[in-house]
C-alpha cells in the first residue's frame, strides 16, 4: 500500500489538479486577497502623479505569460487612463504590440461604458510598438525618446502626437512600469533609474518575484506586482473585478493542493523509510 502511494500514478494527480482548478472556476469561488505594501506602493505612486504626467508602460512578455501579466496591464492602464494622465506603451518583445493594442482597446471601451470617461488614441495614450535590444533602447531613450521611436505602431510620427508632446527624455516621464516575464526590470533599474533617476516599478510572474527583492529593499523600485495575486490586489485597489480576481479562486485551490501533495508525499516517504529500516537486519 505504502509503495503504491509512494509511486502514485501521475494521472491521479492530474485529475486532482483538474478538479482543483475546474470546481472553483465553475463555482465562481472568490477569496479576499488582502493587500501587499509593494502593490499599494505602485498604486499610490500613480495616484500622486500630477495631471498630464507620463506613465511609460512596457509590455515585456509574450502570450505564454499573459494569464499573470495581462490582468496587471489592464488594471494599470485602467488606473492611468481613469486619471488625467498620459499612457505611453512600448515593448521589446516582437509578439507584444498586438497585446498592447488589445489592452488599450479593452480599457478605453470599458472606461467609456462603465465610467463615461472618453480617452483618445494619440492624445491620451499611444502604442509605440516594438524595438529590439532593450538596453540599447533604454540608452537611446535617455538621449532622445523620439529618435528611438520615430513612429508609433500605427505609423504616426512621434513628434506629431499630442500624447508625447514635450516628452523628450526620461526627465519628462513620471513613472516607468515594466511588466515582464524575463529579466528586463533589472535593466530598467540599472540603466534608466540609476543613471537618469526615473522612477521604475514592475509587475512580474510569481516565479521571478524573488529576483527583484534586492531592488525593492534599496528603493530602486517603487513597488512590484507579484504574479496573479499582485494583479488581483491591484484590481481591488482600482475597484475592478476582472480576470485576476476571478482566477485567484482556481489558483489558490491549485496551490493548496500542491502544498497538500508535498506534505502527503513526505509523510508517505517517511513511513516507507521507517519500514525499510525496520526490515533491514
Amino acid at each position: 500500500m505504502i509503495e503504491k502511494l509512494l509511486h502514485l500514478d501521475r494521472r491521479v494527480i492530474f485529475v486532482f489538479i483538474a478538479l482543483a482548478v475546474g470546481v472553483p472556476m465553475v463555482g465562481g469561488w472568490k477569496f479576499d486577497q488582502g493587500s501587499n505594501p509593494r502593490t499599494t506602493a505602485v498604486h499610490k505612486y500613480i495616484e500622486d502623479l500630477p495631471d498630464r504626467s507620463v506613465v511609460l508602460l512596457c509590455f515585456d512578455y509574450g502570450p505564454a505569460s499573459m494569464p499573470e501579466l495581462q490582468p496587471m496591464a489592464l488594471a494599470i492602464a485602467q488606473h492611468v487612463l481613469s486619471r488625467d494622465l498620459r499612457l505611453v506603451c512600448m515593448t521589446t518583445y516582437p509578439d507584444a504590440p498586438l497585446l498592447i493594442e488589445d489592452t488599450l482597446a479593452t480599457v478605453v471601451e470599458r472606461l467609456e461604458k462603465e465610467k463615461g470617461i472618453k480617452r483618445e488614441d494619440g492624445k491620451d495614450y499611444v502604442n509605440l510598438g516594438y524595438r529590439p535590444g532593450l538596453v540599447n533602447v533604454i540608452l537611446g531613450m535617455s538621449a532622445d525618446i523620439g529618435a528611438v521611436w520615430k513612429t508609433d505602431f500605427n505609423d504616426r510620427r512621434y513628434g506629431d502626437l499630442a500624447v508625447t508632446k514635450g516628452v523628450r527624455t526620461f526627465k519628462d516621464v513620471g513613472l516607468v512600469i515594466d511588466l515582464a516575464s524575463s529579466s528586463t526590470p533589472g535593466a530598467w533599474v540599472v540603466y534608466a533609474h540609476e543613471r537618469y533617476k526615473v522612477k521604475v516599478a514592475c509587475g512580474v510572474t510569481a516565479v521571478m518575484a524573488q529576483d527583484y527583492y534586492p531592488y525593492l529593499q534599496t528603493h530602486q523600485l517603487v513597488g512590484m506586482l507579484n504574479g496573479m495575486k499582485g494583479a488581483a490586489e491591484y484590481e481591488k485597489l482600482v475597484g475592478l473585478e476582472s480576470d485576476a480576481s476571478k482566477a485567484m479562486g482556481p489558483q489558490s485551490c491549485a496551490h493548496f493542493l500542491i502544498i497538500a501533495l508535498v506534505i502527503f508525499g513526505n509523510i508517505v516517504y517517511a513511513v516507507s523509510r521507517r519500514r525499510a529500516r525496520r526490515q533491514t537486519p
Binding site: L8, R10, I13, F14, F16, I17, A18, V21, G62, P63, A64, S65, M66, P67, A254, L257, I258, L261, V262, F264, G265, N266, Y269
Partner: peptide
C-alpha cells in the same frame, strides 16, 4: 500559447509530489 503554458500546472504538481522530499 497560454494553453501550452498552463499545462505546466499538471507537471509541477506531479513533480512536487514525486521529488520534493
Amino acid at each position: 500559447d497560454a494553453t501550452m503554458f498552463s499545462i505546466l500546472a499538471f507537471f509541477v504538481a506531479s513533480a512536487a509530489f514525486r521529488t520534493f522530499r
